[in-house]
Nucleic acid binder design. Structure first.
Lengths: 210, 210
DNA sequence: TGTATAAAACTGACCGGTCAGTCAATTGAG
DNA sequence: CTCAATTGACTGACCGGTCAGTTTTATACA
């Protein structure tokens, strides 16, 4: 039984190694430009092994997408849990997506790739929709609590959650294109605009004037 | 000379046909899944002809990206020109991007694909950055005028333009994933949230309460 | 107007390269 | 010895790009 356990863990480890390698490759090259050879090389195994652990290339990518979703979701939950104030929670949520330039870049590129697949491949579509919804639960709760407590103004919940999510995605996109402005500038802009919208500008007026 | 003119126009027509076909194929399948055969078939020519008019597959896609940019930009400029009020101008800008479900879907999918290429291919990156900047001129002018006239509250121009663009992109993304809410819902939400942010909620409070 | 000639437009078979997936052979732990 | 894990050579499908050849159009001339 102990041996069986060990084997299982070993197998899971291998699978995770392959998934991480896939995720990194997708971020760097984009789905269609990644070969099984690339993934195998990065994971330190042979090409044959990739298909020993996963039935197909598609399954491998599906695993990577799921892994990424889970990872981001956990990160959000953890970051939000350690603060109380709705405004701080909102900032924590934004910061758990805008972590640092390299990581955010990887995440965003992989994310858009999976999104793109999601619109064309049924299997990926379900996953993405689920991912999107599960993140949504977090921000909805924060915003509801914020309105309840009076920290935020009286807003339509749907509008506010949509706005928060749209701004994070949209500003990441802008950061990629704009040669003017650092990653940190965009992170702070996201915080500022969201909080400004939620509170009606009653909080960080002074910050904005700087 | 007249004949030469005709030939030129005919050639341009053919090129445009190929570009349109490429755009549609990209929207439906995504860059990497489109073959020259697909494009030729849709344009009603042979595969050989695609490379008679364009040096390579990449050039064909570059043409499609440029065409799309130009088309969207013209549409924005036209839509914005026929109204005066900053709030109406802002709505017109949003509506020229949220046209209808089918067209917006095609635009958005092609757009994200070109964006994805832009991060990996120098030639596409320049194009996208230019596109992004040229659209930016429009919204910046509108927002500056709005603040000047007092229709909008005193906002940081950068924050406001960023916010407008991010919200359009972000809400399109959401519309793809959400099974709840029609295209029209998202179009109106975009209008509502942007105007609410720009005016500080002094305009369509009543709308939001519905 | 009809005919000859040149040029441009167009075609699809073909080539070379790539890559997902297969499988027979090898390794090594128990 | 057994069997799961691992490998990489191999296969067949696919696709971008080439090119020799065909068709269409424009031009020149009688």
């Amino acid at each position: 039984m102990a041996a069986k356990q060990f084997v299982q863990e070993y197998e899971d480890h291998r699978r995770e190694e392959l998934i991480k390698a896939t995720y990194m490759e997708v971020a760097e090259k984009g789905y269609s430009n990644v070969t099984l050879q690339d993934i195998a090389l990065r994971a330190g195994v042979s090409k044959g092994s990739t298909l020993y652990y996963f039935a197909s290339k598609e399954d491998l990518f599906l695993g990577a997408a799921e892994w990424m979703s889970q990872r981001v979701q956990n990160r959000i939950v953890d970051a939000v849990a350690i603060v109380e104030d709705p405004i701080e929670k909102t900032k924590a949520l934004i910061n758990s997506l805008f972590t640092n330039a390299q990581e955010t870049r990887n995440f965003f590129l992989a994310y858009t790739d999976f999104v793109s697949m999601g619109t064309r491949n049924k299997r990926f579509h379900d996953l993405n929709a689920r991912f999107y919804r599960s993140c949504g639960v977090q921000d909805r709760e924060i915003i509801e609590a914020g309105i309840e407590s009076g920290a935020f103004r009286k807003l339509d919940i749907e509008d506010a959650t949509s706005m928060l999510r749209a701004l994070v995605d949209g500003l990441m996109l802008q950061w990629f294109f704009s040669s003017d402005g650092t990653f940190e500038d965009y992170r702070r802009r996201c915080e500022r605009v969201v909080i400004d919208y939620l509170t009606g500008g009653s909080v960080n007026k002074n910050d904005a004037e700087v």
